[in-house]
């Protein structure tokens, strides 16, 4: 049997790139999805000679045509998809509050963080169903947790709360196909998105999503995790 194929959206930098590296270290063939193919190729090159194959592919999850073209390319290239990491996301709230939020920014955020992940998941589910195996990991955030919901960064919060809901819906719909779907919070990670005040090193932040991406057959589904421990929704 050939090794499993993983897709990581937003794989060209930060946490996504680290997840690509760690999955390749575990012997998975990894497709590094990147809005810019040039950035994706450069990122794949930056990893040197990993133990398994890493291939950059153009993937803009906000562009429906790009998502379906990606699925067709993956079908032609590998004819399989075993793991999907919905990592691509934007955080563009700045300091806005919900009462005065620029709704265009809200729309863009939902378009990427929710709809983009949703669409990519949709087009790859048939590949997982065909082999009755799948691991889907949604990169979420504790700030999307409803129990601790508070003011500030409203677009980002709502997008992650919605992604969490989608995680549970997909977990239920795909349970009988042996596809495990979980969300995780990487913490405040030292990346471009995390900014200079972030405390969690990227190597550590990638551990939980990589664990969820390689769960055994009796692994969890429909959960929300940080540091491999369940956290409140």
């Amino acid at each position: 049997m050939s090794s499993r194929v993983a897709v990581v959206s937003g794989g060209n930098r930060g946490l996504g790139l680290e997840i690509v590296r760690q999955l390749a270290d575990r012997g998975l063939r990894v497709v590094l999805g990147s809005r810019s193919l040039a950035a994706g190729l450069a990122a794949a090159d930056s990893l040197g000679q990993p133990p398994a194959e890493i291939i950059a592919a153009e993937l803009d999850i906000t562009d429906p045509g790009s998502v379906t073209a990606f699925a067709a390319w993956l079908h032609g290239r590998f004819r399989r998809c075993d793991v999907l990491i919905n990592n691509a996301a934007i955080a563009v709230d700045g300091v806005q509050d919900a009462a005065t939020a620029n709704l265009e920014l809200v729309r863009r955020t939902l378009e990427t963080n929710l709809m983009g992940a949703w669409h990519l998941t949709q087009v790859l589910i048939p590949a997982m169903r065909a082999r009755r195996y799948g691991r889907i990991v949604n990169m979420s955030s504790g700030v999307g947790g409803l129990n601790r919901m508070e003011g500030g960064i409203p677009a980002y919060r709502v997008s992650k709360a919605a992604l969490n809901a989608l995680t549970r819906i997909f977990a239920d719909e795909l349970h009988d196909d042996n596809i495990l779907v979980n969300a995780c919070c990487p913490g405040h990670v030292q990346t471009v998105m995390g900014g200079p005040s972030a405390g969690v090193p990227v190597t550590l932040a990638a551990d939980t999503p990589v664990w969820l991406a390689t769960l055994p057959p009796d692994g969890c589904t429909g959960g929300f995790y940080r540091n491999r421990e369940p956290i409140e929704w």
Partner: peptide
């Protein structure tokens, strides 16, 4: 995308 046959040979 729903017409892609993923069950065919790799």
């Amino acid at each position: 995308w729903q017409q892609l046959d993923w069950a065919s040979e790799e």
